[in-house]
Design a binder for these strands. Sequence first.
DNA 1: GTACCAAGCAAGTAATTACTTGCATCTCAT
DNA 2: ATGAGATGCAAGTAATTACTTGCTTGGTAC
Lengths: 208, 208
Amino acid sequence: MDHPDIEQKLGGRGEEEQETRERILLAARQLMAQKGYKGATTRKISELAGVNEVTVFRHFKNKVGILTELLKEIMDVREQLEQGLQGEFADLKEMLVSYARTYYGLLVERKEIFMICMIEADNHPEVVQMFSSLPMTAVQVLSNKLLAFQEQGHLPKADPFTAALMFVSTFFYAFMAKYRVNLDLEMVEEELFENASEILLQGISGLK
Amino acid sequence: MDHPDIEQKLGGRGEEEQETRERILLAARQLMAQKGYKGATTRKISELAGVNEVTVFRHFKNKVGILTELLKEIMDVREQLEQGLQGEFADLKEMLVSYARTYYGLLVERKEIFMICMIEADNHPEVVQMFSSLPMTAVQVLSNKLLAFQEQGHLPKADPFTAALMFVSTFFYAFMAKYRVNLDLEMVEEELFENASEILLQGISGLK
DNA sequence: GTACCAAGCAAGTAATTACTTGCATCTCAT
DNA sequence: ATGAGATGCAAGTAATTACTTGCTTGGTAC
């Protein structure tokens, strides 16, 4: 009998435990993103998760506990953005397109969490702390990369911070339009990445 | 005695009537922008307005009535944007800077209402209807103007829609960062207008 | 089979919230 | 002075909400 309790926890029951818990998290994420923290009542959450309301409180100390758990999903954003810039790129445009893809994908993957943060920004200290540094992270990471290019002499003039801000803003706006306001951009995302990268590099009055 | 009732309404009592009503609207606007519709309880609104809670319901049929009233403030956005493009401009850059100023100013002026719309986008049909067309309005107006320039031969290649999207997004993002996330952009707005306009026109790799 | 543990179910509780009613007060135009 | 209209105040109501308690059921490990 060597530590049968541990085996038991991980093996036997663990599976279903997690299943329920994650169904609750999934439901909460969806509802909070749509209706806000207050609008996502524990009752609605339990119903959407297909469990009894009591079960929700068996898995989480209280409602805030659910929110806190959800917020953990956006802690590693900076790292992921920086990793996306590690590889080798044929040229600057390639890099920009790749960065756009990474950033936009990151937003879409975690769209519910970001929505919750947007909505709840003022109400929950937990959200504020976690979210406040985030909007500028993507700008900073790109800004630094551009600055490095400049210092290598591959890139003339122009404020890299403003450039990064413009670039990142574009995809954030597109993301918000699509997933918050349900607006049709009438443009394939990949096409947007291309066009935006080109404009950022050449401008629209470029003499060609 | 020719219509003394009308005189009375507009003159005598009207003044204070409006004062109270607008103090309520002001409070509601502030609170809803910060805490969302649900978070802005009628009690808090009345307290912030410095009136009795009952008075709120004497002025508005119900809570939704307050929201509906507030939303009227963003109905004329498109017109204002187009008006901002009417004047004569020395060059394209002047026009862009001016447009940026108009658009950003418009956001700041109505910041609370826009926040309410962002937050409540999913919950209230009134908001959806009023707000859904708005994010792209600023893009379209600018996009059309750019297209006109192109057709006059003053502007080569480049997708005007993407360009307009990039431009507008930038100031929206800056606006959100400042007023929703309380982030310091470390940049004077006017400077941002200048830089962004320049980058949109010339790009960052412009051979000069 | 028995002990355990997750989950369901029924019921309840204290607080909050939108909204109402009735009455008193104050101001002001006539 | 008088009447009207705007506001305050006290009290209440019905619904909702986060959260609890006690008991039962059903599956799995030994």
